[in-house]
Design a binder for these strands. Structure first.
Length: 489
RNA sequence: GGUCGGGUGGCCGAGCGGCUAGGCAGAGGUCUGCAAAACCUCGUACAGCGGUUCGAAUCCGCUCUCGACCUCCA
């Protein structure tokens, strides 16, 4: 069995995965800010990390998976202006902040369920960890890397960068950032505009306010991740993940905060999932080119001609690699859907296959299995994994048509591969075609197929074709195979 | 403007120094009463121009082009 290699943003290389503690993995992923319903682009990141989580479990690791929920949105932009996105949404919808968060959190949970995401072990919220955040800020201040200014606390990046490396994750150079910022330096309370807020002074219109040693206010947006990842995973853990767009400044600042507080770079492996594109452009709230996870399922977005099921969408996403960008389009989804159907149809008939006493398919099956492992161990190459699963589908179809023969063990092995890699790792819960049909329907179809068989044997093709055409119109397809006729809706 | 990452056959999408990616669409074939499905075969693609090399889609340089980050963002 080959070993797992992970692309580490920190080093820009694929590295052999060696967890800090044998057999155990600590993973922290930056979750959503709940000021609106997460869109498809947000979901892609979560689905990718869900796949990563699933594969780690599949390998037998004991994984502690933490993904935060940002439920207070006090954020500053470069000009030092505050943007309380949750408060803003609350006013817009005439609701309390808590109501907004509650509303979108339950929506987010529904989405995760619909798209078959495994729940993280812990989904901590920022507002429940104000004390922890304050404590870390105090540590940073004690170490001299933060200063108070007019009721707010800022991280002193210039000072910090003199004795610490800043910008490793995003490849940013501190000198450039500082020189840019000097030109922009303005009226605000920061010494340097690259300095970021650890604690913000409250505004009268703020909906969420907490007490702190520096007066009433609310936390900056990077500190919650530092506080919560430290609390639940320790000062250093294995994997820290998030979308690419969080590399700078969010992840850089997390590292700075941890080191500034006397801890280490929190993660051994930093992983970044790429963006979801629409017409070559990143899906984003501000571009307005986004659509929602439920809209695809319902077929209510303008770029799609029809609805697509959650497993199909998930399958489509898995066809691309997590570090590549992925373009969503009608054609791409349509072709993914066709492929998905071919695959799941083949997988669905495994249980009906009859085993032979001998076998000539062992080698092919073993090849698929070892290629599967190799693909996933190579930085989670789901794209290659799916190519292998199509090979498996061909093998199954050949067994079905007696071009290959398989014994009981082969069929068992095939089933294990499907359950392991397709269902468990890729997280695609396919319904075998007839599983949701009623017994009555099954009997009825058997009867119809029997009648048609009789007429075909009497060369009464007019009748047999009539039956087939009728069923076709009703959306039921008949397929005449060596073993008799099967049907599909 | 700065930094970084892309440009692969009709479309989507892996690979990243020599060995078939795969899917969808298309062509031909096998099976079949016909059809569908399935199976087999096929197209000979790597933005352009140079260079390195026995050998490059894969490495280097230049050009064109798209995008991301530099402001909130998964």
């Amino acid at each position: 069995m080959s070993e797992l290699f992970i692309y580490n943003t920190l080093t820009g290389k694929k590295e052999k995965f060696e967890p800090l503690h044998t057999g155990k993995v600590g993973m922290y992923v930056c979750g959503p800010t709940l000021y609106s319903e997460p869109h498809m682009g947000n979901l892609r990141t979560f689905i990718n990390f869900d796949m990563i989580y699933r594969y780690l479990l599949f390998l037998g690791f004991q994984v502690k998976y933490v993904r935060n929920i940002t439920d207070c949105g006090h954020i500053t932009n470069s000009l030092g202006q505050e943007q309380d996105s949750i408060g803003k949404a609350a006013k817009l919808e005439q609701m309390e902040s808590l109501e907004i968060v509650y509303k979108y959190n339950s929506k987010f949970q529904d989405i995760q369920k619909a798209y078959n995401l495994l729940r993280p072990n812990i989904e901590p919220t920022a507002t429940a960890h104000i004390q922890e955040q304050i404590q870390i800020i105090e540590k940073i201040m004690a170490n001299g890397y933060a200063y108070e200014s007019n009721g707010a606390v800022y991280f002193d990046l210039e000072k910090y960068s003199k004795s610490n490396a800043y910008g490793v994750i995003s490849g940013r150079k501190i000198e450039e950032l500082l020189s840019e910022s000097r030109e922009l330096q303005g009226q605000d309370e920061k010494r340097n505009s690259v300095d970021f807020a650890l604690w913000k002074k409250a505004n009268p219109e703020d909906m969420q306010i907490w007490r702190s040693p520096w007066g009433e206010g609310n936390p900056g947006w990077h500190i919650e991740c530092t506080a919560m990842s430290t609390k639940y995973l320790g000062e250093q853990f294995d994997i820290h993940g998030g979308g690419m767009d969080l590399k700078f400044p969010h992840h850089e600042d997390e590292v700075a905060q941890s080191c500034g507080a006397g801890m280490k770079n929190p993660a051994k492996y930093w992983m970044h999932a790429n963006m979801l594109n629409v017409n070559g452009q990143k899906m984003s709230k501000s571009f307005g080119n986004f659509f929602l996870p439920f809209e695809i399922l319902e077929g209510t977005t303008s770029i799609f001609t029809k609805p697509f099921s959650a497993p199909v969408v998930r399958f489509f996403m898995m066809m691309g690699h997590y570090r590549s960008d992925l373009d969503f389009s009608n054609d791409a989804l349509l072709s993914a859907e066709k492929g998905y159907e071919r695959l799941t149809e083949a997988f669905g008939k495994v249980s009906k296959l009859s085993a032979s006493d001998s076998s000539n398919s062992k080698e092919a099956i073993a090849q698929v299995e070892s290629n599967n492992a190799a693909a996933m161990n190579d930085d989670f190459n789901t794209s290659k994994l799916i190519a292998e699963l199509f090979e498996l589908a061909t093998i199954i179809n050949k067994i079905d048509s007696k071009d290959l023969i398989a014994d009981q063990n082969d069929l068992k092995k095939i089933n294990e591969i499907i359950q392991g890699y397709f269902v468990q790792v890729l997280g695609i819960n396919f319904e075998s075609n007839h599983s949701n049909q009623s017994q009555a329907m099954e009997h009825l179809m058997n009867l119809v197929i029997e009648i048609r068989k009789d007429s075909r044997e009497k060369k009464d093709f007019a009748t047999s074709d009539k039956i087939r055409d009728y069923l076709n119109q009703a959306g039921i397809e008949l397929r005449d195979g060596n073993e008799g006729t099967s049907w599909k809706i």
